[in-house]
C-alpha cells in the first residue's frame, strides 16, 4: 500500500514539477478526507495539480469556473421539463463529480458559494425537495486569487473553516521551470496518466489514515497549540474544535504518507501552516492575511514536549 502511495506522489510530481511539499500536503488533505483551498496567482498550476490528482486517484473530474453571475443551480444541477415523457428530469450539475475544481471561488456571490460549501460539508445536496447523495469519495479543490480583490466576495471565516487545508503553490524553482519549458506540454501529459489507485484502495487508505496512532503525548501537544491560540493576546480568536480535529486528521494522513503508523510532533508541525493558517487572524489586523506569522509563532513558542 505504501508503495502505491509513493507511486502516486511520483506520478504527480512528474507532472507538477518542483512542488513536492505542496503535492504531498494536497495528497495528505485528500487522504484525510478534507477539501483543499489553493490560493495563488493564475497560471501557477492549480488546475494541473487538481487534474493530475484526479487522474492518479482514478476520480471523475469536473471544473466549475466561478463568476459573479453563477447561480446555485449552475453548480448543483436543475430539473428540466422533458417534452417526451412529460416530466421534469433532473440534470445533475458539475458538483456530481468525485473531484470538483471550483476555480476562483471568491468571484461568485455568497449565495452560490454557500451552495457549494454546504454540499462540501454534508456530502449531499437537496434540490427541489429531493436529497441526492454526492459521489463517494468527494473532494473539492477551490482556488482563489488573493491579489485581485476587485468585485470579489471574500470567503467568511465560517466558510474558510470548512477547508481542511489552504495551500499556496508559489513560483517554481528555476530548474523546475526549465524542465517545464523544455518538456512536453502538460495538457498532453495528462491524458496519458494511468490511475494508480482505485476507489476501494482509496477508501482503504483513508481508513488506514484514520487508524494511525496518535498517542496521549501527541494529543497533548495539539491541545497546547490550540490553547495557545485561545489564550495568547495576539490571536483575534482561538481555533475551533473542528480545527483541532483537522490538525489531527491531517497529521495522521501525513504520517501515513511518510509510512509511519504513528504521529510524531514533527508531522503536526509539517501540516500546521496549511491546516490553520487560514483559520487564524491577528488581533491587531482581524481581516488581514496574518495567519502565517501566527503559525510560525506557534511553531516556535509552543513547547513540543
Amino acid at each position: 500500500m505504501g508503495r502505491k502511495l509513493d507511486a502516486c506522489l511520483n506520478a504527480i510530481n512528474e507532472v507538477v514539477l518542483g512542488k513536492e511539499p505542496q503535492v504531498r500536503l494536497a495528497m495528505a488533505c485528500l487522504l484525510g478526507g478534507g477539501h483543499l483551498l489553493i490560493e495563488d496567482l493564475p497560471g501557477m498550476g492549480k488546475t494541473t495539480l487538481s487534474h493530475t490528482l484526479a487522474r492518479v486517484l482514478g476520480l471523475s473530474f469536473q471544473r466549475i469556473q466561478f463568476t459573479s453571475d453563477l447561480l446555485p443551480g449552475d453548480i448543483l444541477g436543475t430539473s428540466i421539463f422533458d417534452r417526451e415523457t412529460g416530466q421534469f428530469t433532473f440534470h445533475p450539475g458539475p458538483i456530481f463529480a468525485e473531484l470538483v475544481l471550483a476555480d476562483e471561488i471568491n468571484r461568485a456571490t455568497p449565495k452560490s458559494q454557500s451552495a457549494l460549501l454546504e454540499a462540501m460539508e454534508e456530502g449531499q445536496v437537496t434540490i427541489e425537495g429531493a436529497t441526492r447523495l454526492l459521489p463517494n469519495p468527494f473532494f473539492v479543490i477551490a482556488t482563489q486569487n488573493p491579489f485581485s480583490q476587485g468585485g470579489t466576495f471574500a470567503l467568511p471565516e465560517s466558510q474558510l473553516d470548512r477547508f481542511l487545508m489552504r495551500l499556496s503553490l508559489g513560483y517554481p524553482a528555476r530548474s523546475a521551470e526549465k524542465a517545464l519549458l523544455l518538456g512536453e506540454s502538460r495538457r498532453e501529459l495528462l491524458p496519458r496518466i494511468e490511475p494508480i489507485i482505485d476507489h476501494t484502495e482509496l477508501a482503504a487508505l483513508q481508513a488506514q489514515a484514520r487508524g494511525v496512532r496518535a498517542s496521549d503525548a501527541l494529543v497533548d501537544y495539539v491541545l497546547r497549540l490550540v490553547d495557545a491560540t485561545r489564550n495568547q493576546p495576539q490571536f483575534a480568536y482561538g481555533l475551533s474544535p473542528r480545527a483541532s480535529l483537522a490538525i489531527l486528521s491531517a497529521a495522521r494522513a501525513w504520517a501515513l504518507l511518510i509510512g509511519r503508523d504513528y504521529v510524531i510532533p514533527e508531522d503536526v508541525q509539517a501540516i500546521l501552516p496549511a491546516v490553520i493558517g487560514h483559520r487564524l487572524r491577528e488581533r491587531t489586523d482581524p481581516t488581514g492575511h496574518s495567519g502565517g506569522a501566527l503559525v510560525q509563532w506557534l511553531l516556535r513558542e509552543v513547547p513540543v514536549l
Binding site: I264, P265, E266, Q269, L298, L299, R300, E301, V302, P303, V304, L305
Partner: peptide, 9 residues
C-alpha cells in the same frame, strides 16, 4: 533544544 523543536528534529 528550541521550545518548538521536536525530539526527532
Amino acid at each position: 533544544r528550541q521550545q518548538g523543536e521536536g525530539a526527532r528534529a
